Computed example of a mutant assay.
Amino acid sequence: MGKAKVSTIGFTKTTAEGFFERLLKAGVKKIVDVRLHNTSQLSGFAKADDLAYFLKSIGEIKYVHEPLLAPTDPMLKAYKKERGDWSAYEKRFLALMAERHVEKCFKPEMFDGACFLCSEDAPHHCHRRLVCEYLNEKWDGVLDVRHL
């Protein structure tokens, strides 16, 4: 297999129209929800059951929740609620991915045409970017990643 085309997207600071149009324009075939809690109220269209319905109805896009690629509750609390340091969070999260051996739980082709979803609007301080970077390191750069 050649490169697996993978996207990432966040749903905050956007409208439903903007969110779904970006997915359609990018040709996304599957959303991989990497949030720990996928029933977020941050955007009404992003709750798991509603999101799965909208994705299927609007673009025949599959929906999968993958908490194995999410941080733990204590990690989230330390970073979000207690305004933790990003570099400390990043180190803890990457160590968690290594501890879970996520690179052995998935294959690159499983993510071809997929888009990793979480709440952050930009990938800079978001674990979806870290997931892609971690997997790319373990899989010798086979993921062609774009942030929508």
Rank of each mutant, 00 (worst) to 15 (best):
R22F: 04
D50R: 15
R92N: 05
M75L: 02
N38F: 03
Y134E: 00
A114M: 13
Y134V: 11
A78K: 11
E21P: 00
G27K: 12
P108W: 00
K104S: 13
K62H: 11
L51A: 02
L24V: 07
W86N: 01
L68E: 13
R128P: 12
E133I: 10
I31M: 11
A48F: 05
T72R: 14
K77N: 12
V34R: 03
A122H: 15
T39H: 09
R83F: 00
A46S: 15
F45V: 05
S43R: 13
E99I: 03
R92M: 09
G84A: 01
D85R: 11
L76I: 10
A46H: 03
E133T: 09
K81H: 14
K104T: 14
F54W: 14
Q41I: 07
V131L: 02
L94D: 08
D33W: 12
R35W: 08
G27W: 08
K104E: 15
L55V: 03
H65D: 04
A48H: 06
V32R: 00
A122N: 14
F111T: 05
D112F: 00
R129N: 11
A78C: 04
K77A: 05
C115N: 08
F54R: 15
K91R: 11
F93P: 01
G44L: 12
M97N: 11
A26V: 09
K81G: 10
R100M: 00
K91H: 06
K107S: 15
F111K: 02
R92V: 05
A88S: 08
V131M: 00
M110A: 09
E133M: 02
K104Q: 14
K104C: 08
C115F: 05
R83N: 12
L117E: 05
F19R: 13
E103Q: 12
V131G: 00
H127F: 04
K107T: 14
K80H: 14
W86P: 04
D121W: 12
S43N: 12
E82R: 09
H124L: 08
L42N: 09
S40D: 04
C115E: 06
Q41A: 14
V32F: 07
K77W: 11
V34C: 04
L36H: 07
L117M: 09
F106L: 15
P67M: 02
H124M: 02
H65Q: 05
K47V: 10
P67G: 02
M110W: 02
C118M: 01
D85S: 05
S119V: 01
E60D: 15
I31A: 10
C115K: 08
K80G: 07
V64N: 04
L130A: 10
A78D: 13
H124V: 07
D85K: 10
L69R: 11
M110Y: 02
R129Q: 13
C126K: 08
Y89A: 10
E109K: 12
L94C: 09
V102H: 14
V102L: 15
T39I: 01
C105S: 09
M110D: 08
R83D: 03
P71K: 01
S57E: 13
A46R: 13
D33L: 07
S119P: 01
N38H: 08
K104M: 13
F45A: 00
F45H: 03
K91A: 13
T72I: 05
S43Y: 00
V32Y: 02
K80A: 13
